[in-house]
Design a protein around this nucleic acid. Structure first.
Lengths: 250, 250
DNA sequence: CGGTTATTTGACGAGGTTCAACCTAGGTGG
DNA sequence: CCACCTAGGTTGAACCTCGTCAAATAACCG
């Protein structure tokens, strides 16, 4: 935890002192060896002492919570380069499991926090990561709160497309490493609804299946429109009066 | 307020010198005057340059996003003592409006960031705030993703009860300053469903209305059970085997 | 007191879930 | 090399929760 950082003993700084100053947050992790996890294997569990911060180096991780009756909510999928366990205090708020075979680097919280104290340049980078995490969480709240099944699936596909090849996923293929159940638990739907929605998108020629876990995006514009994010300019103008009524009921 | 007294005195003593080191993050805000907003008034808008950080000093704020068709998602309600605009980069990710008449203090981002650099003691406090924000966001994702209308409303009431008087809301009254529409947009429901659900809870004697915006919690245990969080210890143990099966489908 | 807005209540329908059957791919063993 | 087996995925039909539309009621404000 950050609060212990500035009172750290010298011995905790040893590793850091020997290492050159990292230029980027990610480089902190280069010193430690990589650990491997098989698909389905757990990395840590909700409620565990949050001793470590992780950097995914290969593969995909799912992060989730369980509530009554065993209902599961996947709050995110993490890809190579993503950091896990940043915005935590003493306990993990969620569990993490490997979706695919995963390799990751583990850094104890203490040296991580010490590095942040020692090298101020790292702090904005750290902060930016946390902000991204927050922004993602907010988008997910929007999705879960107000989007239809179709919009949810479209948004998810768009998200993966963007992650895999920048902002112009035209005609590109996307790979869905996770099961339909994972998707469902991420999108707040059931596997059946996810499956049906995908079928519908395929039928309309928006995407085209290339095996069960790969799709080609045939109509990226259409897919974007289906996300329901309403970021087109005309839309904004057209709905202004209606919005005012809805937003400011006073 | 204590923090006001501290600030005034310290400022006097250190007139021409460096500002005094604030003991707490919140005290940073004591120097600036309070601004007032009427109910329904906007404080900042999604997409605006994120120049300031705010501390609510009185009243309740709602924080929300708008998507296509004017659909609104309220991502949070902020009460006295809460900080707004912490986990942001250059632009606000959401809009903020006053639910009730609000008084708040505004601090420019730059001095805020400088204070964080200058006084390391503030950083863990800042970090803790951000973590709480994240934890809240995750709980909200769980609510929106997997909870029934009844569970959502119960969770909301419980949240307010806890905020108003600690962890034991037995027999206590809660005040809902926001409209049913606000509640609906926060819980991912419609006003009608919110209304009906409340009516049902009243009919079952779980809560009892005292005007439209005040309720007494008659059966806090029952209300807690209705939240669907399954956070009782026995529950966790009992469902362990079932969970494992659900979590690792491989 | 009258007009306005928020909330409640009712009837109905749609979107999504549930339950169940079926299909498909990938792995295993004969 | 093929048949079988199994887990994951798809499809169908009934059901149900919640959303929609409409009207009634209750609080609010001048």
């Amino acid at each position: 935890m950050l609060s212990v950082a500035y009172s750290a003993e010298a011995k905790h700084l040893n590793a850091a002192r020997l290492a050159p100053q990292p230029e980027r947050l990610e480089e902190l992790f280069c010193a430690v060896p990589r650990e491997s996890f098989e698909a389905g294997e757990g990395v840590f569990w909700e409620g565990d002492q949050a001793d470590h911060v992780f950097k995914v180096s290969e593969g995909v991780l799912r992060v989730f919570k369980i509530i009554a009756d065993g209902r599961r909510v996947i709050t995110g999928f993490l890809y190579a380069g993503d950091l896990v366990g940043l915005s935590l205090k003493d306990r993990y708020l969620y569990s993490a499991e490997a979706v695919t075979p995963v390799r990751l680097r583990r850094l104890a919280r203490k040296p991580f926090a010490e590095a942040l104290e020692k090298w101020p340049d790292l702090r904005p980078q750290f902060f930016a990561r946390v902000c991204d995490e927050m922004a993602t969480a907010q988008d997910q709240m929007v999705l879960l709160s107000r989007k239809s099944a179709e919009e949810r699936v479209a948004t998810f596909l768009m998200l993966l497309a963007r992650r895999l090849h920048g902002c112009h996923p035209i005609g590109r293929r996307i790979h869905l490493p996770m099961s339909r159940l994972d998707m469902a638990d991420y999108l707040g739907l059931t596997i059946e609804t996810v499956s049906r929605t995908i079928t519908k998108l395929v039928a309309r020629g928006v995407i085209s299946p290339e095996g069960r876990h790969d799709f080609a995006i045939c109509k990226p514009g259409k897919l974007l429109a289906l996300c329901g994010d309403g970021d087109s300019y005309e839309d904004t103008i057209d709905r202004e009066p209606k919005m005012r009524q809805a937003i400011w009921p006073h």
